[in-house]
Amino acid sequence: MIKLAKNFVVGTWSLIKGLAVTIKYFFRPTVTLQYPTEKQPMSECYRGLVGLRPEKCIVCYQCVKICPTACLAITHKQEDKKKTLETFKYNMELCCFCGLCQQVCPTSAIIMTNIYEISVYDRKKLDINLLDMKKYDEWTNTTIK
């Protein structure tokens, strides 16, 4: 009988403690953001969409070799000893945002931008020609400094 009464008191007290925790946070300020209007700043090294600085590229094919999902494809023109980029295809659908291409690039030509809102309505838009960076215009409004 005493044990029962004790259990009852302890049980009720535990429930009240639970209520105390929730009411404590009820009066605390909220921690979430109003997403499309307020955005969390991405860190400096954030790994978003892959971008390219074509003038720096030396066509060494390191990024193509390291890419685990084979989402990059390059073709080049050979003039004398100098290689020039012809196409630089980036298939965003396959990309796993691992950042390996950025790390292996000897000249920092290939970079990870901080564009993270990357959904599109048309599947064709997922195939990006990195030499034509205007493609990123539709995402740039989402970039945060």
Binding site: V31, S43, R47, C96, G99
Partner: peptide, 25 residues
């Protein structure tokens, strides 16, 4: 939600460290 609120702090540290929030590599 409480757990996610706390986890967010860890994820922010990781984000700053390696640039991603779930698949860190």
């Amino acid at each position: 939600f409480y757990c996610f609120r706390e986890r967010e702090k860890i994820v922010e540290i990781f984000d700053q460290l390696c640039g991603n929030r779930l698949t860190y590599n």
